[in-house]
Design a protein around this nucleic acid. Sequence first.
DNA 1: CTGAAAGCGCTAACAC
DNA 2: GTGTTAGCGCTTTCAG
Lengths: 346, 346
Amino acid sequence: MSNRRAADRLDERRKNPTISDVAQRAGVSVPTVSRVLTGAARVSPGKRELVEAAIAELDFRPSAAARVLVSRRSQTIAVIAGNTSRYGYAETIRGIEIAAREKGYTVMITVVESADEDEVDRAISATLTQALAGVVVLKFDPPGVAALRKIPGNLPVVALSGTRETGVRQAVLDEADAAEELTRYLLGLGHKTVHHVRVPPSRRVDGRTSGWKRALVNAGAPVPPVRDATWDPKSGVAIGRGLAADPEVTAVFCGNDEIAMGVMRGIVEAGLRVPQDISVAGFDDHPLAELWSPPLTTAKQDFAGLGGRGFQLLLQEIDGTGDRRYSTERPGLVLRESTAEPRPRR
Amino acid sequence: MSNRRAADRLDERRKNPTISDVAQRAGVSVPTVSRVLTGAARVSPGKRELVEAAIAELDFRPSAAARVLVSRRSQTIAVIAGNTSRYGYAETIRGIEIAAREKGYTVMITVVESADEDEVDRAISATLTQALAGVVVLKFDPPGVAALRKIPGNLPVVALSGTRETGVRQAVLDEADAAEELTRYLLGLGHKTVHHVRVPPSRRVDGRTSGWKRALVNAGAPVPPVRDATWDPKSGVAIGRGLAADPEVTAVFCGNDEIAMGVMRGIVEAGLRVPQDISVAGFDDHPLAELWSPPLTTAKQDFAGLGGRGFQLLLQEIDGTGDRRYSTERPGLVLRESTAEPRPRR
DNA sequence: CTGAAAGCGCTAACAC
DNA sequence: GTGTTAGCGCTTTCAG
């Protein structure tokens, strides 16, 4: 029954003009219409005008499916991500979409919710039946890493962020460097050491964590055990309370701003003040970071820019131009009021 | 040159197995393979097994383009939105994607950044060349409204939120009702009236604003002038300072949580306290709302659920089943600590 | 239940 | 420059 109605629908859709309708109306052959559409070959000004008029009158849109089938060239890219609504992901996707749209590409998005192999297969299988010009994988987390491994080798791919891949073009934000700088800044304020709350790492190594550690080691400061948060900002609250209970803690560097906000909430709930009792720094420069009380010290990550760079790399990969296989950018420090010199607690 | 490499790429891609490779390997005809693929007709268990084995061995994936071309049935939907990274949008899109993926649909996303006609055309033109099963329009703002008008009439469409459309299936969140309830709650606390900061409305009428007004009118409370914010949370800061300067103001209802956070920041910067001097309520229940200091009173909007309901409506529209043209859900109040009884200021 | 034949809308090769 | 011919990978008749 549902099929019956679906069939009706086609009949309706069928009314869409085809290239031969345009050809007929313009009084030219089908290939000539194709030539003005693609711009691949010269067409005399007179015919071109006729064709363009016919296209406008009929509101004709060439079928991407037919085009792809014969030309084996697609103007669609897929973005594969472990999540789409979290700030960094959403901004990155926005950056990709803007860059893609500007070049006449269309973007599909597919979410891979877990790193489980079957789950990954199921998630991307529908996407891989599409004719794709290439794919951008957001490799911020394990699902992204797992997805990357499943992309057929003959498909142009670009990975975004995460640990360095071999054999895949990649755009990254140099988190390690920025994290090191931020930690060094806290140390410079006079803190004996800096504690760290980590967001779920995409692999064993995590740029923010390694940068933090590097700064401590280089400064000869003790390296306290890492505390693990989830992606949920609320997970920071309990951690913040725990940190507040330890009188040794005077400075905390969190894996992202949202966790930092949770941690600050926990510290406040424990009766301490930020930054007077404990300094807290985040990472990302979330839009709400500067509105928080107190405004959050952080490192600004240009996710939209990352997405844009990623798309450019993909374009290069698609048509084999360019030789830059790796594009990196360094997040800049944003110093605000959640960090200060240490003072004796109580 | 770029074309040359692109051509090479095709040759590589060409290696993808086709349905006839599968047929040959399984020793059956092409249509038989098609039949096991689509499940449209019965195939003897023996042949079915052979075909399935061949598919697995070849890692064959049917070409969606070829399929769409002949069957005139697509498994791709487009989501058109004015923005993708703002919380409500991103969550809604996530909800759509999850529901779609579950049914084997693939989702394209296209952003329409302004309501300008040419801009809208340019944004959606690439998308409309794709073979689409239908489209979901996020009608939260003017670009969405403008885009909806541009969708060809023969394409199944569902609108999400915004003002009620005629002739289009629609899923909404009943903002007006929730806003009225929230305002009534503030009035019930003893506030003489409630001020309102509006987010950019998608049209003349805005559910949150009309619900707010209704509550005031019904209670016989004065209706203060509306203050307009942009989508940027920072725009709330100046408004908050302005509100703080007016001693009559004891309660503020903001169009969304992010603006509420900006407003609270402005109030605090002006030296007043929330909720002791001014109560502030938001809308949406943003993930950070409960971590804010003080935790924000708001109305919880289930955006992901909205997206899921929207996709279901679209499916019904596509195959002509179901008669519900309208799906609505009421956001629930979330009472937290940013609102309290009024006390004399200073 | 299964195969042969036709053709979806378009571009690519080739004549002219 | 422009038309003719062929065919992309698949589903859909239609015979049998």
